[in-house]
């Protein structure tokens, strides 16, 4: 912009007002005016902390005092400290939960697409937990899992004996499963809504045609629904890996900061940063996690490129496959 102004000047005296009224000038001004605030916010609250964090990770420091440069020691500590490394393993529970959650969402979304009376009511019930704030969820499930309270009562109704039931949050062999269950509870309805949205984008006449041609529900699911939502299911599955690595809310709010061996990586990081005030170590933990997330994301991109090539090809391929299967079904019907 500066150089443009200079060349202008050499030809005739530069008039800012005239420039500002010209089309080019208006465009430049609006581009700068409309994007400066978002960019300022983005850099201040995302990129600046990111760079700072990368820098912190090489120092031994707390919020106020810098104790000195320590090189890679913080990174080595991330892998050497057993409590931190163990917390990374807890992610596996959350990955397991994510798979259950997606399967459940897929199953329920399929049922919705075949039509259910009162479907909107059921959908609303299952979706609502997604809109509850984290701290309320913490209290709800502390109450829910307390000995002899909600869960125990319901299990007693269907014939369990209180004596044989574990302490859902205290027993270290089960408490992580209890926590993962709350996460599944919160998100399966939201996943289901996403899947229903994708499934509904399929032309309804396709189902009618399939029905007329004698395709049963399972065949309709396999050949019509599944291809249309393959991309979004895969996307959610892969996203759930990064989501599991950064699991935070259940142990943080229900176990008041991850007691009883439920501290996930993020909870541990929060504790290292805000309780032990080891900023360097916490930063190194964050960077390690970010690197893992980047690797997963790149793998995901490659995977999509490799498997689907691009979205249009995928749709065409799926459509062709569908046609072929339907033709086969028709032929079978005719033969009978």
């Amino acid at each position: 912009m500066a150089s443009a102004a200079k060349t202008n000047k050499s030809e005739r005296p530069f008039n800012f007002l005239r420039w500002a009224k010209s089309r080019k000038g208006q465009q430049t001004l609006i581009i700068i005016g409309f994007s400066i605030i978002p960019l300022l916010l983005l850099f201040t609250f995302t990129y600046f902390p990111f760079v700072k964090m990368a820098q912190f990770s090489f120092y031994d420091r707390n919020y106020i005092k810098v104790r000195g440069f320590v090189g890679l020691k913080n990174y080595i500590d991330v892998f050497k400290r057993p409590d931190i490394f163990k917390s990374l393993w807890l992610s596996l529970y959350y990955m397991g939960g994510a798979v259950v959650q997606l399967a459940l969402a897929l199953y329920l979304a399929t049922i919705f697409c075949f039509g259910v009376k009162g479907g909107n009511f059921f959908k609303g019930c299952m979706f609502f937990p997604y809109l509850i704030n984290g701290i309320a969820i913490g209290f709800i499930f502390k109450f829910f899992y307390t000995r002899g309270f909600v869960l125990d009562t319901v299990l007693q109704w269907i014939g369990f004996d209180l004596e044989n039931l574990p302490y859902w949050l205290r027993d270290t062999s089960i408490n992580n499963v209890s926590l993962v269950a709350t996460s599944v509870w919160k998100y399966f309805g939201q996943n289901m809504v996403l899947f229903v949205g994708a499934m509904m984008s399929v032309d309804a006449s396709l189902y009618e045609a399939a029905e007329l041609d004698g395709a049963n529900k399972w065949q309709q699911f396999k050949y019509i629904m599944l291809p249309s939502i393959k991309t979004i299911v895969m996307l959610n599955l892969i996203m759930s890996i990064t989501g599991s690595l950064s699991a935070f809310e259940p142990p943080y709010v229900i176990m008041s900061g991850g007691g009883n061996g439920t501290a996930t990586y993020f909870v541990k990081m929060h504790e290292v940063a805000h309780t032990s005030q080891k900023l360097g170590l916490a930063s190194a933990m964050a960077i390690v996690l970010l690197i893992i997330i980047f690797i997963v994301t790149i793998l995901q991109k490659l995977f999509f490129k490799y498997v689907f090539k691009n979205a249009e090809d995928e749709d065409k391929g799926a459509a062709a496959k569908r046609e072929k299967k339907l033709a086969k079904l028709r032929a079978k019907e005719a033969a009978r």
């Binding site: 465009q27 581009i31 994007s35 960019l39 983005l42 201040t44 609250f45 995302t46 990129y47 600046f48 902390p49 990111f50 700072k52 964090m53 912190f56 919020y63 950064s246 935070f248 993020f266 990081m269 929060h270 940063a273 805000h274 900023l279 916490a282 930063s283 964050a286 996690l289 970010l290 997330i293 980047f294 994301t297």
Partner: peptide, 29 residues
């Protein structure tokens, strides 16, 4: 305009950085 793609990518990339991970240095800021 030059930088249009860059701005889009900067925002896209920002979605990859989990907010809680950044809190360590955001707090200091």
């Amino acid at each position: 305009f030059p930088g249009n793609g860059l701005i889009r990518n900067l925002f896209l990339f920002a979605t990859l950085l989990p907010g809680i991970a950044m809190q360590v240095s955001t707090y200091q800021l």
